Simulated assay, not measured.
Amino acid sequence: MTYSRAATFRPIGQILTTEVLPQLYRAQNSSLRAFCIGTVSYDGGDDPASFDRIVLLGECPSPEEAMSFAALRLSRGDIHASSDDRLCFHPRVMVIQDREQALVLAGEVRARIILWQQPVASDCEARRIVNEASRLRGMAFSASGNGDHGSARNLRYRASLLEARLVDPFWRETAAELLSLPQAA
């Protein structure tokens, strides 16, 4: 009876390079970027001439500070798509990413409040969400091809909200802990 060495032991060098060092590198460079995904239009409505826009809000050193910063900017109503005052920006999704563009946390914007989404608990759950979001994006593509731009935008928005739960595995535990903490009123 022979045992496969690879099945029982991994060299310490392999463990260091594949697991330990990437996490240390991420922790060292943990500056986080907060940005808002929304819709821009000239009249403030949901007309066919409106378009999607991503607005960078700023950088923060920690997830807690990024959440507070995003909530403050949203509550003040000072998120603008450009310097043109005629353009109205309607925020829809708030996103926090690390320097490597890994998703740390995301949430839906409703009535100037961010409803942060609970991260997926497993890779299996993540696969289900990816499948459902892909289905919604396919439906959006079809609706757009039929000229129904409003429905296409809403389907893409629903897909984005599902994808908001696809937090990077490195950040899942941190995000879950942050969302389990009581929020100050």
Rank of each mutant, 00 (worst) to 15 (best):
S50R: 14
A143C: 12
L21E: 10
A133E: 07
R110H: 08
V93Y: 00
E19F: 07
L32Q: 04
Q183V: 13
A49C: 00
G147E: 02
Y25A: 11
L21N: 07
E65N: 06
E64P: 02
R135V: 07
Q117F: 04
T18R: 14
L162M: 13
Y42S: 10
G77C: 09
C124W: 08
P91M: 07
E59S: 05
R5Q: 12
L16G: 06
E132L: 15
E173Y: 00
V95I: 13
E100L: 14
L162R: 11
S4D: 14
A66D: 00
A133T: 09
T2L: 11
V20F: 12
N29D: 10
H80F: 14
M94G: 04
G145D: 07
H90A: 02
S68M: 04
F9V: 13
D78R: 07
C36A: 12
P22Y: 06
V130Y: 04
L179N: 00
T18P: 03
G150I: 09
V93P: 01
R137T: 02
S75V: 07
A71N: 08
L57K: 02
Q118T: 14
C88A: 12
F9R: 11
F141L: 10
Q101M: 12
A7Y: 07
L74C: 05
P48K: 08
G147F: 07
A66T: 01
Q183S: 14
V130G: 06
R86F: 08
D85K: 14
A70M: 10
E173K: 04
M94T: 05
R110P: 05
Q28T: 15
I114L: 01
V40E: 05
D46N: 12
I79S: 02
S142V: 09
E132D: 11
G147C: 02
P61T: 03
F89V: 02
R73V: 04
S83L: 12
Y25H: 12
R10L: 09
E59G: 01
L162G: 09
A7I: 05
L32F: 03
A27E: 11
A140T: 03
A164L: 02
I37K: 08
L103S: 05
P22N: 06
P63R: 04
C36R: 01
A49D: 15
H90I: 10
D168T: 00
G145A: 11
E108N: 06
L162V: 11
P48T: 08
